[in-house]
């Protein structure tokens, strides 16, 4: 099937094994008004692993992702049932500020969305709004994040230039750098490579491998190759239901559901 998938599985697994149920989604149902978008989803995301959500358009994978940091809160008429826990605590706990949740759960969007500010200001944005003003701290965070996002060498001489002058791939890596600058634990990626060319996509994918050592990553993707290349586990959604969730190898090599098999082999989607 996908030869690279197996290669990736042989990653230098820094097997300081974390929690198996770092993100625990339990019987999660979700409605946009009267429309049910998710139906009784239950899955666990292990710590410092990459989990890919795949499925045809409108299957609810993005909805579920956006629930992990409660970005859907802004949408009118939403309703949910069941629960999502991160590190053992419900994200709907009244004692949890949605803001602090989002600091813990960073997000990278489908379309890169750098702020119309300088590269530097973009990267340290999260720190600034947290009230960090110490220039040294900001500088250090900026460099670290950009290095982690593999962008440092390309932009280190023009940190004060507008971020909008970067290429598409650079912008997306900048958004990743921005998302990891305040050291979240989880990184949600919503089709981060869909607007990028293959070279930029390759760089982002490499980056995801690097980041896995530190972050728990949930990635939504339309590209099964990408899911196969970057993820440890893959969840296949269809019509708001979780059809199959297993190791990536299993999903791609030997799916247990017929729908998964049909989707993966390109018979619909």
């Amino acid at each position: 099937m996908n030869p690279s998938a197996s290669r990736i599985k042989v990653q230098p697994a820094t097997e300081s094994e974390g929690r198996k149920d770092y993100i625990r989604i339990q019987d999660f149902g979700f409605w946009y008004g009267a429309k049910k978008a998710l139906d009784a989803i239950s899955l666990d995301v292990p710590e410092r692993r990459v989990v890919a959500f795949i499925g045809p358009s409108g299957c609810g994978k993005s909805t579920l992702l956006r629930n992990l940091n409660r970005m859907n809160d802004l949408v009118d008429g939403i309703r949910h049932e069941g629960d999502i826990q991160i590190a053992g605590r419900s994200i709907y706990d009244p004692g949890i500020e949605v803001i602090s949740l989002r600091r813990r759960v960073g997000m990278v969007f489908q379309k890169s969305n750098p702020f119309p500010k300088s590269i530097y200001d973009n990267v340290v944005y999260a720190l600034r709004i947290m009230g960090v003003t110490d220039r040294a701290v900001l500088d250090e965070a900026c460099e670290t994040s950009l290095r982690k996002a593999a962008l440092w060498d390309e932009v280190k001489d023009r940190l004060n230039d507008s971020a909008l002058g970067l290429s598409g791939g650079q912008m997306q890596r900048l958004c990743i750098a921005r998302a990891i600058a305040n050291r979240p634990e989880i990184l949600l990626m919503d089709e981060p490579c869909s607007a990028l060319d293959p070279i930029a996509t390759g760089k982002i994918e490499e980056l995801i491998h690097e980041l896995k050592a530190q972050f728990t990553i949930v990635i939504v993707t339309h590209s099964m190759q990408q899911a196969a290349r970057v993820s440890d586990r893959t969840a296949f959604f269809y019509l708001g239901k979780l059809i199959e969730y297993d190791t990536t190898e299993k999903i791609f090599m030997n799916p247990s559901q017929a729908q998964t098999e049909a989707y993966i082999s390109g018979r619909f989607g």
Partner: peptide
């Protein structure tokens, strides 16, 4: 663009911080 607002909110900014910055 909503993308900028979402981007800011996703970084843990409050609504007011998002508006202001």
């Amino acid at each position: 663009p909503d993308a900028l607002v979402s981007g800011s909110l996703a970084l843990g900014a409050s609504r007011w911080q998002t508006v202001w910055s």
